[in-house]
Design a protein around this nucleic acid. Sequence first.
DNA 1: TTGACGGACGATAATAATTATCGTTCAATA
DNA 2: TATTGAACGATAATTATTATCGTCCGTCAA
Lengths: 144, 144
Amino acid sequence: MEMATDIFRDLCQKHGIAMTHQRQVLFETLQSMYGHPSPEDVYVRVKEKVPAISLATVYKNIHLFVDSGLLREVSVHHGTLRVETNQHPHHHLICSECNQITDIDQGELGFTPGRTKLANGFKVERYAVDVIGICPQCQAKQTN
Amino acid sequence: MEMATDIFRDLCQKHGIAMTHQRQVLFETLQSMYGHPSPEDVYVRVKEKVPAISLATVYKNIHLFVDSGLLREVSVHHGTLRVETNQHPHHHLICSECNQITDIDQGELGFTPGRTKLANGFKVERYAVDVIGICPQCQAKQTN
DNA sequence: TTGACGGACGATAATAATTATCGTTCAATA
DNA sequence: TATTGAACGATAATTATTATCGTCCGTCAA
């Protein structure tokens, strides 16, 4: 489960971030966990290896990892409660650059809802699809 | 844009909630808005019609509407920051009863990613699918 | 109509999650 | 190895949300 230090150093270099002891332990800890842990959960686990670490460091580096593509977060949506005003069946386009969320009709997306019962017995009510990518505005900015 | 009071009363009855003036104005206001407003946004708008309304009432009733199915929220997992520990391409099963989130492999879901460029010029990086429904455990509880 | 009851409201205190600040320490590199 | 900016740790501050609690309003029985 241990990752060689120089492998992690390379990984950091590839993603353009500095390598520190805290970051290495944090990353290794994440890889050893299951499911969708909260920063607090991760903090508790990392403390076993680096007792002096601060919760703020965990937050800062999770965000750093996410921003630099080392790590992914469960949902790219707003951190706050948002309500749908669009009554029609639709999905979301989310720009990974500016985080803007735009609605797209189910038909326009070319998405056909799959089965209504999955292998494990999960009963499907509906599908919510997030299309993550770059919006036209941000594409234009990038080429400039 | 106005909704007759007795139509809203019927709607409330159908969903098993009491009808009040604040709820009616809140609901009408939501229907008149676009995009994905925050409770604060909605509060500001509702205040124009009901100046004495409290932000807490807006929160309470948005949740009531969501729970009773009158309204939908943008993301089922907003709330707190969660990180993915699963490196493989996967999607999420979300139980609308107990809110548990389970990973499901893209293949197992039977989902075929669509086009990589959408009509409006949006450049697709990846698709994130949330399957919302009832997990086997909660189905068992319901039949009991 | 009146009186009682329960649920909804408004004001605001409390909590939870996250971010900002700031002095100290560490990692990259010349 | 000395320099220098970035990262760290402690903790204060902020933001979003929820809980509390006294009051008010609508409904129903007398």
